[in-house]
Amino acid sequence: MKILCCIKQVPEKDARIRVASDGAWIVEEGISWAISECDRYAVEAALRLKESIGGEVCVLSVGDDKASKGIKEALAMGCDRAIHVQTDAVARADAVTIAKVIARAAKDEQFEAVFCGVQSDDLGYNAVAPAVAELLGARHMQIVLSVEPVGESALKVSHELDNNLIETAEISLPAVLGVQTGIYDVRYASLKGIMSAGSKPQTRYSLEDLGLSEAELAPKVTIESLAVPERTHQAEMIEGDPATMAHTLVEKLKTQAKVL
C-alpha cells in the first residue's frame, strides 16, 4: 500500500512562548522545535499499517529548515522516503490553505492511505485531515483511535464521537485519517534508522514547483494579533513555603470553601 504521513514542526510543549514585536507571531529564535505530538502518532500509525500489509511510507512536511529536522526523525523512525515542501509562507496560514499545499504535493503520487495528526500543537485547527481529503477526493475520518486493513481496498477505522462514544466504520480507499494521541506506543528511532535516514530519498518542492496560484495561497484567515489571554477569573493564589501553603490551603478548604 502507498502510505503517506504528514508532520509539522511546532514549538516544544514546554517552550517559553513570547509574542514577536510585530504582535502577530511568536519569537521563533531560542526555542526548541519538535514534531507535533499527534503527528508522531500519525507516523506510528503509517508504519504499523505498512508492517501489517506491506508497501511504503512516505513522510511529508511543509516548512523551512525546521521541517528538515522532523523529516529526518521520521525517516529514522522507519519512513522510506520524504517530500519536503520548502516554504515558510504558510506557517501562519489557515487550515484550508495548508491543506491545498499538502494535497498538491501529494496528488500525483496517488497515496492510498494518508495519516495526519488530528491537531497540531501550535495553531491547533483540528482541521487539516478532512480538508486534505476533500481536495484529494478521498474519504476521511478525524480523531482516529484504531486502524486495520480490510483487504486491499478498505480500512476499518474507529474514532471518537462526543459523549465518550466510539464509532467504527469501514471506509474505502483512498482515505485521509486524523490520528489521536495515545493510541499506540510510538517507537523511537533505532541507531540503524538514524544511520540510514540521511541516505533515504527526499523530494523537495518549492511553492512555485507545485504551481499553486497566488489566489490559491492567499490566506483566508489572518492572525491580526497574539496575546496572553486576558484573565477573566484568577485563582486565589496561596503563597509561602510548601508546609505553609499546605496548611493555609487545608484551612481554607475547611472554613472558606467548606468542602472538607
Binding site: 482541521a127 478532512p130 480538508a131 476533500e134
Partner: peptide
C-alpha cells in the same frame, strides 16, 4: 465545536473554499 463538527466542518470549508475559524 463538537467532535462531530471536527470531523466534517473542515471538509465543508474545503468544499466551499471558505475561511474556517475552528474552536
Amino acid at each position: 465545536n463538537s467532535y462531530q463538527a471536527i470531523d466534517y466542518f473542515p471538509r465543508l470549508a474545503a468544499v466551499l473554499d471558505a475561511p474556517l475559524v475552528p474552536d
